[in-house]
């Protein structure tokens, strides 16, 4: 990832990206995409192999259990034969038991080797998955960069040809200020209208002229109280 980012930065500083020219050329892109496909293929193969090995290991586990079961079953047979005084028969059964036990040991050894291979393969799968995620991230950076360059080039071409022209920041700021002033005027106007509708503006005018309805009412009450003093 770092090498891709450095490549992008070098190209950008060199002004290679003007007019939306691809920074990492199509060739570089194709190489990345090929690496991605190779990684995906390797991962797929490793997963298939892993699944097969795990199935084999499960089958071996079943066989081992079966040999062990048979051995313990034959042990009971052998005990019964000894109890019945059938020494020869007991020996024959004992031979069978040895056979089962040997096979169980052999199978267990095989399975242990298999388990080691499975562990190794799982590690390989994890590595491949990480690698794949890395490649995808790199490709995304490269592709996004190209898209941004092509998009901005397209916007610039369009706006320039429309002659509404890409405004300078100063012109834009001027227009923003004009709109904000208009909005402020509108707010002031609607506040004025609101006052007119509620009569608040008239109250304000009366107050300014020294005519205050509230104050008059209080004075009236006071005068009345003074006219009828407490007995």
């Amino acid at each position: 990832m770092r090498s891709i980012l450095n490549k992008l930065l070098t190209a950008m500083r060199g002004g290679v990206n003007e007019l939306g020219e691809a920074v990492v050329d199509g060739q570089g892109n194709r190489i990345l995409e090929q690496e991605l496909r190779d990684s995906e293929q390797e991962l797929k193969q490793a997963k298939q192999e892993l699944a097969a090995l795990m199935a084999e290991s499960a089958s071996l586990a079943r066989q081992i259990r079966s040999e062990q079961d048979n051995a313990s079953k034959r042990e009971q047979d052998a005990r019964k034969a000894i109890a019945a005084g059938q020494e020869d028969l007991a020996r024959e059964v004992a031979e069978r038991i040895v056979g089962h036990e040997r096979r169980a040991v052999e199978l267990t050894q095989t399975r242990e080797l298999l388990q080691q291979r499975i562990a190794g393969l799982k590690e390989r799968v994890q590595r491949a998955e990480k690698q794949l995620a890395d490649y995808r991230r790199e490709l995304q950076v490269v592709k996004t960069n190209e898209r941004v360059l092509r998009t901005t080039a397209q916007i610039d071409t369009n706006i320039n040809s429309q002659k509404s022209s890409l405004n300078t920041a100063k012109e834009t700021l001027e227009r923003i200020r004009e709109r904000q002033a208009r909005e402020e005027d509108r707010q002031t106007a609607s506040a004025t209208l609101e006052k007119e509708l509620t009569g608040a503006d008239l109250d304000e005018k009366l107050k300014a002229a020294g005519i205050d309805g509230e104050q008059d009412a209080i004075d009236n009450v006071l005068a009345r109280l003074k006219d009828s003093p407490a007995q």
Binding site: K143, T144, V148, T151, I155, L166, T172, R175, R179
Partner: peptide
């Protein structure tokens, strides 16, 4: 209205940008 936003859709994202 003074600052239009440009929008483009790619596989991995929707990119919106405005020029300063």
């Amino acid at each position: 209205e003074e600052t239009p936003v440009y929008l483009t859709v790619t596989d991995s994202q929707i990119l919106c940008l405005a020029y300063l």
